[in-house]
Structure formats: C-alpha cells, structure tokens
Amino acid sequence: MTASALRKPAPKPPLLEVSGLSKSYGTQVGCRDISFAVRPGEVLGIVGESGSGKSTLLACLSGRLQPDSGSISYDMKDRGPVDILTLSEHERRRLARTDWGIVHQNPRDGLRLDVSAGGNIGERPMALGARHYGDIRSDAQDWLKKVEIDLSRTDDKPRTFSGGMQQRLQIARNLVTRPRLVFMDEPTGGLDVSVQARLLDLLRGLVRELGVAAIIVTHDLAVVRLLADRLMVMQRGRVIEEGLTDQVLDDPHHPYTQLLVSSVLQV
C-alpha cells in the first residue's frame, strides 16, 4: 500500500454545480463567492444564524432571486449541464415544476389553501400531462398515506389542517413527480418538537427511498445531523467551514462553528 498506488474512483457527475455566486442588496451582503457541487442522491445541509445569507443563497439556487454574479449549472434530464441563469423564465419555471421540489418554511407559501389536499398533490402530475382522474386520485392517496395523512381528509382543504399536516402535505405535493433535487427552507421550523421528530423521520425515509438530492437550509443542527451527508456553515454571507456532517459537528475547526456547536443545549 503505497501512495503511488493511489487511484480515485470516478465521481458521479454533479447534478448541481455552483461557482462564484454572489448577491447583495445595495451595500448589504446577501451571500458572497459561494461555490459547491451536489451529486445525485446527496443531501447537503446549510446552517448559519439568521442573516448569514443561507436563505438568500437558497432563493438564488431555486431561481426565485437573480444573483449579481456567478453561475449555477444544473444537469438537465434531456440537455445535460445548463447554466440555469441563462434559461428563459418559462424554461426555469418548467424545470422547477418537474425536476425540482421546493419545500417552504411556511407551508402556506407552498400549498393552495383553497384546493383540496388531493388536488394539491395532483397539480404537478396534471401539469406534466396526467389526465385520468382515477389515476391522479389514487396516486394522490398513495402519497397521503406515505406522509401519514388520513385518507378521510383527501377532499378537505389544507386550511383546516394542523401545521405539521400542512408541512407533510407540502412535501407530498413536491415529491409526487419524483424530482431529482429538492430545496428545503427550514422544513421543521415553526413545528412542535414532537411533530418535528415525526417529520424528520419521514423526510429521512423518503430521501433515502427515492434517492433524491436535497439542499436543506436550517439553523437546527439536529436536523442536519439526521438528514444531511454534507454540511456547509455560513456566516456573514460566506461559507466558513464545510465537510462531512459528522466531521463538522464533532470536530469543528472554525471559531464560529465551534461556538455554534457548543451553544446547542444538551437534552
């Protein structure tokens, strides 16, 4: 075993590759010079306190905000790697609706509150051309089961659901078309701790079962410990430390990461 025998297995080509991404609001820095790649099936966690730029970064990645500079290359199913910033608004929306999922912190931002639960799940398949009512409904019910919502609620509107149920419905609505990449912004924020644990376990199972790649922005280190393979720590718009999740959390090197990890209350 000598160093000369070192050979690396070929990496899977990245699904998403970001380089030199920056966005500021006037003189206020949102995020600065961010570069990273996400491979198929990989779960990346982004942590940092409020104002660290993580939500700005997520908004740029998912096409909701135009960055000032940098590139975001996505490996599209039929076209290969494309800089999504050069796509037309129409193309980008189509990509977001078919190959991506976006789970918002507040489920009301990601659901249609005046459409039934079944209808919320059926919307994406229908946008992709599904027309058979029976199929769409049974598909929707499969997903309601997966996210542990009682089938008797299929025709109820989500405004009558609890926060945890709404969040689970939002996840079903996003995953029904089997996207390859899901963006999640504080998916467990605003939920009771017991509801959080259930949602986390559900997300963990789904991410593994479907093999989707995910980018999860959160300030909750327990969430990334459970879900993410890899972690980026942000402070004042920059990535200050990154690596395997357990490495960064168990052996943090940067002063800010050490502070973040040591500030977590032990239960």
């Binding site: 025998a5 899977k12 890899r230 690596g243």
Partner: peptide
C-alpha cells in the same frame, strides 16, 4: 483500490 481517507472527497468517505 488504495484510497487515502483523509484526502478523499466527502461523497467518497460516505461510500
């Protein structure tokens, strides 16, 4: 193959 765990990319360490 011989791999240096400390020089490996995160995805490689996972594998």
């Amino acid at each position: 193959q011989t791999v240096d765990l400390l020089a490996a990319e995160p995805w490689e360490v996972v594998e």
